[in-house]
């Protein structure tokens, strides 16, 4: 059976969702303001005859009309970074400011890390944690290509990251990646409820540790690229005794509220303050994002 069928009740316009889920994703990129400002970059693209369209909800996000965006000179020189549209949402929700200390607990390949760095204007400190040595390579490579000077990389198990206080923590958790099916078909073949429950234990431990590390009043953003409530709302619900949810609002980007009923069980009503992003609403992948403020 199609593993997505179990979401028929929670995803609006389910048939349209299924149709869009099987279409390839349009290439998108973020303008890297650490190296290039927006007007100059757009001028370059115009000069070179490269087609683009700015996102309606984020002026630094571009839909590109090219076959191999990774080959563009602008990408090689680090003026843009190829990044899926919705992957630019969690850093905006995190809202880091120059001079703060931020932890990106599951950082590789570093697209969000580098976006956080540009939001902080290369000031302050980001600790980008990535336990896998193999995955540190693309993380480092992206940070260096994009001219990031305020990131230090660590390799702790995120569940046991040492006790250091942070203003903000991003938990872009390992997940079943169902929302990435449009990027690389095959994800769904491995996806099922059992796998989601296995991942849930890890996700809860990561989120709990993130909340331990955040200072009181600090912001923790939890995100995944999956639709499974076991990996989303049910993870966030487990920490609502130590943090409160805040509503996410990104004008121009359509979302659905987090669900509060699943498999006959009623969940915490505050979960509707978190956001679900579906492929057929904005022609993107899929994402779940929750913004928590530590008590």
């Amino acid at each position: 059976m199609d593993p997505l069928q179990r979401y028929r009740e929670i995803i609006p316009n389910f048939d349209q969702f299924q149709r869009v889920q099987s279409l390839p994703l349009p290439p998108t990129a973020r303008i890297n303001t650490l190296k290039m400002d927006e007007p100059r970059l757009l001028e370059r693209l115009d000069e070179e005859g490269i087609g683009y369209k700015t996102f309606s909800w984020y002026p630094l996000g571009l839909k590109l009309d090219v076959e191999s965006p990774g080959k563009l000179l602008e990408n090689l020189l680090g003026y843009i970074h190829i990044q899926e549209e919705l992957s630019m949402v969690p850093p905006l929700v995190l809202g880091p400011r120059p001079g703060e200390r931020v932890l990106d607990l599951c950082a590789s390949p570093g697209s969000k890390t580098c976006q956080i760095s540009q939001m902080m204007e290369n000031k302050g400190l980001i600790i980008a944690n990535e336990p896998s040595l193999a995955r540190v390579t693309p993380l480092r490579s992206n940070c260096e290509r994009l001219g990031v000077m305020n990131v230090a990389i660590t390799r702790y198990d995120g569940r046991n990251f040492p006790n250091v206080p942070f203003d903000r923590v991003l938990v872009d958790a390992p997940c079943s990646s169902e929302g990435r099916e449009r990027k690389g078909p095959g994800v769904m073949a491995r996806s099922n409820c059992k796998r989601s429950l296995d991942l849930q234990a890890l996700q809860i431990d990561l989120l709990k540790n993130a909340l331990r590390l955040a200072r009181s009043g600090g912001v923790v953003v939890y995100s995944t690229c999956t639709y499974a409530p076991e990996e989303n709302e049910l993870v966030v619900e487990s920490v609502l005794d130590r943090a409160r949810l805040e509503k996410i609002s990104i004008p121009g980007l359509k979302d659905c509220p987090g669900i509060t009923d699943w498999n006959g069980v009623h969940l915490d009503d505050d979960l509707q303050l978190s956001s679900r992003y579906y492929p057929h609403l904005n022609n993107t992948g899929g994402f779940y994002v929750a913004k928590l403020v530590k008590n």
């Binding site: 290369n122 400190l125 990031v148 000077m149 305020n150 990131v151 230090a152 990389i153 390799r155």
Partner: peptide, 29 residues
């Protein structure tokens, strides 16, 4: 900037208070 040496490489990072933990990379090589 702060500068560090590890083996034969020199690294630079924006001047900041670095927590005393174990690092894989500090700023840019």
């Amino acid at each position: 900037y702060l500068f560090f040496r590890k083996a034969q490489s020199v690294w630079a990072v924006n001047d900041n208070c670095l927590p005393r933990i174990s690092y894989e990379a500090i700023g840019m090589r």
